[in-house]
Computed example of a mutant assay.
Amino acid sequence: MTKTVSNMVVQEDTTAVIDLFCGAGGLAYGLKMAGLHVAAGVDLDPNCKYPLETNTDAVFACRDVSDLAPEDLTQWFGDASVRVLAGCAPCQPFSTYSQSRKSVDHRWTLLREFQRLAMAVRPEIVTMENVRGLATQAVWSEFVQGLEESGYTVSWSEVTCTDYGIPQNRKRLVLLASQFGRIELIEPTEKKIVTVMDTIGDLPPIAAGEQFDGDPLHISSTLSSLNLRRMKASKPGGTWRDWPNDLRADCHVRETGKTYPSVYGRMEWNKPAPTMTTQCFGFGNGRFGHPKQDRAISLREAALLQSFPRDYAFLKQDEQVSFKRLGTLIVNAVPPKLGEIIGQSIRQHLVQVRSGTLPGTQQLSLL
C-alpha cells in the first residue's frame, strides 16, 4: 500500500537511517530496537566500526563528515521512500563540563556540516540529539531556522533522561523534523525512576583493579593506597568533607576546590547515577565510586548506566581493554534507550502519516 502527502510518497517498510557521528552506535542501536532499519553509520574514529556493525548490522564508514558529499548519503539511503538523517555532532564546545573553552570553537562547524548534508539531500525525517547548552547558541537557532525554511516542521525540547527509564541524571536536547508535518517526541510513560541498584546491583562484586572472568568490561581501575583509604571513608551520596583532615587533598582546602564536593564521591543505590563522563571509571573524577564496593564503577557498569544492554559488544574477542578508549566510546554515545524513544516517536509519526491521522494535515489519498 502506498500513500501520499502533497507530492511525497510514503511506502510501508522502506525506511532507512543514516547516523552521522555514530560513535559506538548508541543512537543507531536504539533506532534499530524501535524497528527502524539503520543503513549506515559515519564516524572519524575507527574504533567505532566493530560495535556499530556488530550491534546494528549497519555499514560503517570511517569518514570525516565534513568530507561527505550528498551523493554518499544518497547511495547509502538506496531506494528507501522514507529517509531518516540522524546524528549527534560532537558537543564539547557547548558542554557544562567544558566551560573553560572559548565561546567560539571550530567544532561548531560540525553542526553546520550536518545541516549542509540535510539541506542537500532533504531526507524526509531529521533528528539531532545533543547537550542542552547548545540551545542557547546562535548556531542552534540557525540550524532550526534553516530546517524550517526548507519546509520541515520542527520540534525540539530538553529531555530529562530519568523520565524515560534511563538510570542517569542527564539532560539532553532532542530535535525532530519532518517534511510530512507535525512530529514530536513521545511523552514519558515511566512511572518509576530506575536506580543504580536496579541497574548494576546484581553484577558480581570485584575489587579495585580486578576484572571479572565472565565479562572483560566488568573491570575496575586500580586505586592507590591513599585513594583506597579515601574510598573506605566515603559515604554513598556524601563528599570528601566526610573524610578526616589527613585524607583531604590540597585542592580541597583551597577556595576553588570547595565548590566541587562531588569529586571523590560514591553513588547512591536508591537514586539514578550522576551524568556519566568519559572519565567515569576513575574514583577521583566525580561521583563515580561504587555505592558499596571500595572501587570506582567498572566499564560494564558505566555502559549499563548509559542504558546499553548487557550483551552489547564493544570489543572483539580477546581484544585488550583500554579504559580511556572504552570510556570515551561508552559515554560519548547517545543512551540507547533515548535512541529507542526517538525511534518510537518517528515510527508513531509515520503511522499517523500513513493512516491519514497526522494532526494538522488532510486525509491521505491512496494511490
Rank of each mutant, 00 (worst) to 15 (best):
M1F: 10
M1G: 09
K3V: 15
K3Q: 11
V5Q: 08
V10H: 09
E12Y: 06
T15A: 11
A16L: 03
F21W: 06
G23I: 10
G23Q: 07
L27R: 01
Y29T: 03
K32A: 15
L36D: 04
L36S: 10
V38A: 12
G41P: 02
L44K: 03
P46V: 14
Y50A: 13
P51A: 15
E53H: 05
A58W: 04
C62A: 14
V65T: 08
D67I: 01
D67W: 00
A69L: 13
E71G: 06
T74E: 15
Q75L: 14
F77G: 08
G78K: 12
R83S: 08
L85G: 11
A86F: 10
G87N: 10
A89I: 10
S95F: 13
T96W: 10
S98Y: 09
Q99S: 15
D105V: 12
H106T: 15
W108C: 09
V126P: 00
T127G: 05
T127L: 09
T127W: 00
E129Q: 08
E129L: 06
N130C: 04
A135E: 11
Q137Y: 06
L147F: 13
E148A: 15
S150Q: 08
S155R: 02
E158M: 06
V159Q: 03
T160P: 00
D163H: 07
Y164M: 03
P167I: 11
N169V: 04
R170Q: 04
V174S: 01
L175V: 12
S178M: 06
G181I: 05
I183P: 00
I186W: 00
E187V: 05
D198H: 03
D198Q: 03
G201E: 08
G201L: 13
D202T: 10
P205E: 15
I206K: 05
I206Y: 06
A207F: 02
G209M: 09
G209S: 10
G209L: 13
E210W: 07
Q211N: 08
D215E: 14
S221C: 15
T222D: 14
L223S: 12
S224H: 12
R229C: 12
S234E: 09
G237P: 01
W240R: 07
W240N: 05
L247E: 09
D250H: 07
C251L: 14
K258E: 13
K258Y: 08
G265P: 00
M267C: 06
E268F: 02
P272T: 11
T277M: 05
F283K: 01
F288W: 03
P291Q: 10
P291F: 13
K292G: 07
R295S: 06
R300D: 07
L305E: 04
Q306F: 05
R310S: 08
R310E: 14
Y312T: 00
D318T: 00
D318S: 05
E319M: 01
F323R: 01
F323M: 04
K324C: 01
K324H: 02
G327W: 07
T328S: 06
T328L: 12
N332V: 06
P336R: 11
P336Y: 14
P336N: 12
K337G: 03
L338P: 00
Q344E: 13
Q344R: 11
I346E: 03
R354F: 03
G356W: 02
Q362A: 11
